[in-house]
């Protein structure tokens, strides 16, 4: 039987799942408390700005807390400390995943501009722009998990 060891992909998967859950809860909260009762608020750019600005610190604090929780769970299960620095394989995986994520972000940005061009509501562009940050981040995490599981080559 394979000995349990710390694996970066487990931390990434944990972070990915919790990020999606937090985002889902936040989106549900915004919908139930603001959009559902007043759909006109979608056209208010101030509302979108506030929604995004509040989300950023929530995500940062949540990530810090979840990182600590994961470190404790990891220590209990594997009896290993999490590495404090990245080595060459981690950096290569990060670079390749980042490249994929940037492509996704560019594509969604292009779609957002396209939405404006064909005369859709301004909030559609705003939602697409905000989504591009999170979708590209999710794609980056999935790419990282894939490379850690399947291996990676230079070039």
């Amino acid at each position: 039987m394979e000995e349990k060891m710390y694996r970066r992909e487990n931390r990434i998967l944990f972070s990915l799942i919790t990020t999606v859950i937090i985002l889902g809860i936040y989106a549900l909260y915004i919908y139930n408390n603001y959009i559902d009762s007043n759909p006109e608020i979608l056209n208010d750019l101030k509302f979108w700005g506030k929604t995004f600005i509040i989300l950023v610190p929530i995500m940062i604090v949540a990530q810090i807390i979840l990182h600590i929780i994961f470190a404790i769970i990891n220590k209990i299960i594997t009896n290993e400390d999490m590495p404090t620095s990245e080595d060459e394989m981690d950096k290569l995986i990060e670079l390749k995943s980042l490249r994929i994520s940037r492509w996704v972000q560019s594509l969604i940005f292009f779609l957002a501009m396209g939405a404006i061009t064909i005369g859709m509501h301004i909030w559609v562009m705003f939602v697409l722009l905000i989504s591009s940050c999170f979708i590209s981040s999710i794609v980056e995490s999935i790419a990282q998990i894939y490379f850690y599981k399947r291996g990676i080559k230079h070039g």
């Binding site: 060891m5 710390y6 694996r7 970066r8 290993e80 590495p83 080595d87 060459e88 394989m89 981690d90 850690y148 399947r150 291996g151 990676i152 080559k153 230079h154």
Partner: peptide, 22 residues
């Protein structure tokens, strides 16, 4: 060697080719 155990595992399995320095 100054890398993580996960990297050593990947090299042993042939899933990662190390840099010349490593």
């Amino acid at each position: 060697t100054g890398v993580s155990r996960q990297t050593i595992v990947a090299i042993e399995k042939g899933n990662y080719s190390p840099s010349l320095e490593l």
